[in-house]
Design a protein around this nucleic acid. Structure first.
Length: 295
DNA sequence: GATGAGCGA
């Protein structure tokens, strides 16, 4: 094979090929002139001059945007050339639009809330006032909860029926009115039905709190039984209002018992009868009525 | 064998 001694690489051969020389410029009217010097098939040198007009690439520049560039500027920008002035304008892409609740209105609400709190503090002097009997304890702890629970809302504008130690009293009517929660009809905020006070007959609420839901105590469950397991198990009988699994406070390990509260007492009773003595997780369940929790 | 946590004003 005859190999050229001078050539060391194929890349050198590329240089041998007659590369056309190209001059290329764009005038002020946007006309592009391309002058190409090349060699034609007959070995003669030729000069090819092409004039082209660049057209905006519509796929890249929206014609609406291009059109805008022709608009006359006004105000402080009057007479300036098209496009943003980088000295005064920052250009960024993908600026996210974040929509949030108007902070002015929420500040207002907050302020209102604060005045309400201030009024409450003034009226109750920072003390806990029972919503039922106006005693110095939380509503949930009220000794009259069961007997007066349903009367709560109806007695809103009445003077407190009892003072702190529970003796009948007629004092501080203004304080009682101020300390009472805003009635559902007058308050601006939405109050879910479950949180509204006792209304007319036919409504379930009022006197019925989650503390006196029909509750079963389930014992002899494995220590890794979860709330969901019991919900699933007892949910077959009806609506399960609440499940609590007794656990060690530190370790979180189940202590082998749980409470399952139902919405409906007869449902709870059926569940108890069906589930008591049933096997679960290789253990025999013990299901009884729970004792009311106290203290 | 065993009977609950935490919240609020």
């Amino acid at each position: 094979m005859a190999t050229s001694t001078q050539k060391t690489s194929w890349a050198d051969e590329v240089d041998e090929i007659d590369q056309p020389k190209i001059e290329d410029f764009v005038d002020e009217n946007g006309i592009r002139t391309t002058i190409e010097y090349t060699t034609n098939d007959e070995g003669k040198k030729v000069k090819i001059t092409r004039k082209t007009k660049r057209v905006l690439q519509k796929s890249l520049v929206d014609h609406v945007v291009a059109e805008r560039k022709t608009w006359a500027k006004f105000g402080q920008e009057k007479g300036n050339k098209p496009g943003p002035d980088r000295a005064t304008t920052t250009i960024a892409e993908d600026v996210p639009l974040r929509i949030s609740a108007g902070n002015k209105s929420s500040e207002k609400e907050q302020a209102q809330d604060n005045t309400v709190k201030a009024n409450l503090a003034r009226a109750g002097a920072g003390k806990v006032v029972c919503r039922i009997c106006k005693g110095a304890h939380f509503t949930a702890k009220c000794p009259y909860k069961d007997t007066l629970g349903g009367l709560e809302v109806r007695r809103l504008d009445a003077p407190p029926m009892f003072d702190e130690d529970g003796a009948p009293s007629g004092a501080e009517p203004a304080a009682a009115a101020a300390a009472a929660p805003a009635a559902a009809s007058t308050g601006g905020k939405y109050v879910p039905p479950s949180m509204r006070g006792a209304r007319g007959p036919g409504e379930r609420m009022g006197g019925t709190s989650r503390d006196d839901l029909p509750t079963l105590r389930v014992t002899n469950i494995s220590e890794d039984t979860q709330e969901n397991d019991l919900r699933e198990l007892f949910g077959a009988f009806g609506r399960v209002a609440r499940v609590y699994v007794g656990r060690d406070r530190e370790t979180g390990v189940g202590k082998g018992f749980a409470f399952v509260s139902f919405e409906d007492k007869t449902t709870a009773e059926r569940a108890m009868q069906k589930m008591h003595g049933r096997g679960y997780d290789n253990l025999i369940l013990n299901v009884q009525w729970s004792q009311p929790r106290d203290k």
